[in-house]
Design a protein around this nucleic acid. Sequence first.
DNA 1: ATCTTGGATCGATATTCATCGATGCAGGGA
DNA 2: TCCCTGCATCGATGAATATCGATCCAAGAT
Lengths: 112, 112
Amino acid sequence: MATAAAACCAPLGSASLSDTEAEATARVFKALADPHRVKIVNLLATSPDSVCVCEFTEPLGLSQPTVSHHLKKLVAAGLLEREQRGTWAYYSLRRDALGGLAAAVDLQGGSR
Amino acid sequence: MATAAAACCAPLGSASLSDTEAEATARVFKALADPHRVKIVNLLATSPDSVCVCEFTEPLGLSQPTVSHHLKKLVAAGLLEREQRGTWAYYSLRRDALGGLAAAVDLQGGSR
DNA sequence: ATCTTGGATCGATATTCATCGATGCAGGGA
DNA sequence: TCCCTGCATCGATGAATATCGATCCAAGAT
């Protein structure tokens, strides 16, 4: 049985995916189905510390409300974590969730 | 360095993702950002042979044009392969592409 | 208390997308 | 040749989404 896959979504190679499982899996993919959100994840993946909202707007070339919108979607998908420090909001990558997604996509380890 | 990641898209953990790379990666995720397409991939992943279009409509509960629409998106993303056999069109899973995606998502192997 | 600043929410808008009926098209009989 | 069948494309429609300006709220600082 897979280990981290349950932390994210059902593996693509599982015997028979229920409609609910397919929806849950699609929801995680949908969170990553935007270039800006891919870049957010990439920025967080390459940063050792959490990053505050104000540091995203410039590399993304987006307004602050739009950045908040994308961050909210990634948090809702379980891929990011939010932490408030005084006036600032810091976001960090949930690397276990990303690992779970990788396991769910991998047909070799995730299912068979 | 990663091996199969290039066959799909740039890894999420790469040093610095360009806008073009982020778009390419998001495009693959977008192909899987639909419950019906997730189920199509799951059906193909659990089937040893390729599957013809007519076999998808019933388990998906979709009309034939809609199924063709989804299949076309998955082929365009490089995840499926199409083969014509007489009157029928058979689709199969490109398991190497899915493996490449898994490698791109995996922060351990894909980038570090 | 007032001002400033960071960030979330709201409202509006333009674009993308999923879905299906109708149609077109190619291949295989009869 | 004509019909039938499987599949792709077209056109239309309703829903979801990305984006931003304006606004609101909370937390410090003066």
